[in-house]
Every structure is written in C-alpha cells, then in structure tokens.
Amino acid sequence: MTMSRRHALAAAALIPGAALVGGPARAQQRFDSIFMFVPAGPGGGWDGTGRAIEQAARQAGLVGSFQFENVGGAGGMVGLPRFVNQRRNQANALMVGGSVMVGAGITNKSPVTIANVQPVARLTEEAGVVVVPANSEVKSWTDLAAKFRSNPGAVPVGGGSAGGTDHIALGLILKALGRNPREASYVAFAGGGPANAAILGGQVGAGISGYSEFSEQVKAGRMRALATTGEKRIAGTDIPTLKELGINVTAANWRGVFCPPGLNGQQRQALIDLMTAIHATPQWKEILTTRAWDDAFLTGDAFGAYLKQDIAATEEVLKDLGLA
C-alpha cells in the first residue's frame, strides 16, 4: 500500500538495473537477459519485488542482465494491457503482479485482467493484521468481535483504498461474523502514513492493513494487534490468526511474477525453472529475511489454480461490498 494517487510515485522509466558489484557467474546462466515489467512506479512493493529478483539472480549468475520498465497506475491496470499487447510471445519477459491487481481488475471492470497473462510463480505474501490504538477500551479480539456483531457501523475501521486488500479482508470478517459487509464504517486512507496517524490518534476505532504497515507501532506498544489474516502466525510474533480464534477467514496480499500470453508450455517452463532456481539461492533467502517478506513460493499450474480461486473469492466479496 503506497499513495493512492499516481503522483510522482507512479513514475515510469526505462532504466537498466543497477550494476551490482558481483563476481563472475557462479552458477549456470539460464537467460542472457530478462525484461522485467513493473506495473507500478519505482519504490513500491511490486517494484521492490522486481528489483529483489534482479539482485538475487545476478548475484547468483543466473541471468546476464535485466531491463526494467515501470508503468504505474490504478493497481496495475494501466500497465497490464501494455504488457499484454507489447510483450506477447516474448520468451524472456516477466511481469510483477499480485492480489491488488486481482481486485483492481474487478472493481475497474477492466477489459484486460490478470487472467490474460500466464502465472509463473507466487513468491511472497503478507498477512493482514487487525489493530486498535493502545489506549482503546477494546482489549482483545473477543471485545472487537462483539462490537462488530452488535453494530459494525459504530466501529470506524481505517485502511487502504476502498475495494483494496484491506477492505476485502474486513468484508470477509464481517461476513463470517454474520453481518453484511456493507454495514462497515470503512475509512479509506491514501497510504500507510495517514492510516497510521488516524489509528495512533484514535480517530478511528480500529485499523486493518498489511502487517508491515503497523509492525513498528505494535512493537513500540502504541497499537495493539488483535488478530492476523494469514494461514499461520507471522514469524516472530504471538498474534493469533483469525482461524485460531474461530473465524474461518484467510486473506493475504501476495506478490508473484507472470509471463505474457502466447508463450508455449516449454517457454513458460523455462521461466518457472528460472524462478525456482532464484528461489533456491541463499541471496533470495537473505532478501526475504531483511525485508520481512513471508515465503509463499508456488509455481506453474498449482499457482494457476490458486489464482483462479483467489479471483472467484475476491469477486464474491466485492459483490457483497457493492463494488463489483
């Protein structure tokens, strides 16, 4: 979650990747060059994922060089059609994408969606977390769930833009609690900064967003984390998952890479193999640790099946929210 408006963030530039101070190739080089398309501006999560792939692949000598193109805007919906049209059949082209793109395709009724590109690998995911200000009278998930059950509208919840990952997670929670997702008082903020400020200042009753948005405030004791939306607990924390608390809801903001339409099975497999090799490098492991990204590696058809299910589930919630 970054700034909603394109601003300078959604910049785009064709720049060769930074020259890394790496030695000669240490592993077998699989691709001379990779064209990495990032449908978001430099500096955000997708861009970071793309550049991390470059860093690991080049240090391990798996790829000779990388070329980046950033075309930002509308949750990837501006860049996606460009990738589909311009890179069709290009065997060394990869695009970064993720769950944000699934939702954006549905809410914007875009003619070109994530279903128009081929899944290569899911790489990382980040669970959401439900927080309240430290001085809130809400002490536990039970307290908050009781409030949601009696009147969801009375608890304003802050998060990212409407129809985004955070809003969807809240919708799922309310539904599981037997309320209509539309009853939520969801307050959308343009970016993590303003959302954090509103929660810390007690302007909203609770907050929901990716764990990294709130982690530092939680560690410092200024926010209380009540539950996470992942399959399992976030490493290094003792925050229970919703499932443990008896709410059958999981939602995660995942990121992965895709290849253009038109590639045959063999060409796609070569890219899958490349991603598998990158995933196995110690450099990638190190990046996951420093960035606190959760490994969610899943490739090829298994990823494709997951994607299909994710699209269906997202569409259903967005319909419930009245956004699809």
Binding site: R6, A74, V78, T107, N108, S161
Partner: peptide
C-alpha cells in the same frame, strides 16, 4: 478512482484517468 468507494469518476472509461 474515488478513494472512499473505489468507483471511477469522470474517467470516460479510460484507464489512463483512473489514477
């Protein structure tokens, strides 16, 4: 796209105007 509802306004169906 309106931040509070996720709906596009005055974009005339052009994705370039969504942001």
């Amino acid at each position: 796209v309106d931040l509070q509802t996720g709906q596009p306004r005055f974009t005339f169906g052009m994705i370039e105007f969504l942001d």
